[in-house]
């Protein structure tokens, strides 16, 4: 297997005085999908935000293609090939769909797929007809597509997705899963935060189960599906 594109080692993070992550480690290779599973408050979102550099207080090592990024501001991390799609999507509601995409545009990067609005409209046909619509006036599912498309405009090598399936209709979720598998096929590394094992199960190769900001279980998705005991222990009712 190829070398890891993203390595996280002994990551600790805090919000104010509250410690959210403790000694978190994982790695991710190109063309691989890793799902962080856990309940609300387990630290999934914080992990993604810490990788991007959006958590003020953190400690530990984060390497992208062997380059240490733990001290860098978010825009530098993004320019090194980390794309982040937050849970609440955070599309720029006053900008049109097309403008949202333009904001995400970065120069092409060697070794990763290069995206253009045209190519993205091919991937998300629903957006094509909406390109001049203010992004605040498109549906939730369309906003999720836009959020992913906007991040892809930066030609990332690693895509961090925070509960992308949440609040979407089942049909849209199916399309999303298919899209993510397609991106993986293009060689992108995907880091997924999920509560929904059903969705993660069809997309992810490996899983980390988080609880209280620690990794409790680490393994392949296939193994977890074969023996879901860890999932039941840490996720179920």
């Amino acid at each position: 297997m190829s070398r890891a594109i993203l390595e996280v080692e002994a990551l600790d993070a805090w919000y104010g005085a509250a410690r959210i992550l403790t000694d978190l480690s994982f790695e991710l290779r190109s063309g691989e999908v890793l799902a962080l599973l856990g309940r609300n408050g387990a630290g999934k979102t914080t992990t993604l935000r810490a990788v991007v550099g959006l958590v003020a207080r953190r400690r530990g090592r984060i390497r992208i293609a062997d380059r240490e990024v733990a001290g860098l501001p978010p825009y530098r991390v993004a320019r090194l090939g980390i794309g982040f799609v937050p849970e609440d999507r955070r599309i720029f509601s006053g900008l049109t769909v097309q403008e949202n995409l333009e904001v995400g545009r970065q120069p092409p990067r060697a070794g990763v797929p290069v995206w253009s609005p045209e190519r993205l409209f091919g991937l998300f046909p629903a957006l094509a007809g909406l390109r001049h619509r203010p992004a605040g006036r498109i549906s939730g599912g369309e906003q999720q597509m836009l959020a992913i498309a906007r991040t892809l405009m930066g030609n990332p090598a690693v895509l961090l997705l925070d509960e992308p399936a949440e609040g979407l209709a089942p049909r849209v979720v199916d399309h999303l899963a298919e899209t993510l598998r397609g991106l993986k096929g293009e060689g992108l590394a995907l880091l997924l935060s999920e509560q929904n094992l059903a969705f993660a199960g069809v997309v992810a190769d490996r899983v980390c189960i988080l609880e209280q900001g620690r990794v409790l279980h680490h393994g392949t998705m296939a193994a977890l599906l074969a023996d879901p005991t860890p999932a039941h222990d840490h996720l179920a009712l």
Partner: peptide
């Protein structure tokens, strides 16, 4: 807990069988 609709929508049905 035993409501099938709840399990489908909120808990997700995993390929593993029971609610997640």
């Amino acid at each position: 807990r035993d409501d099938a609709q709840v399990r489908a929508v909120y808990l997700g049905t995993s390929p593993g069988g029971r609610g997640q």
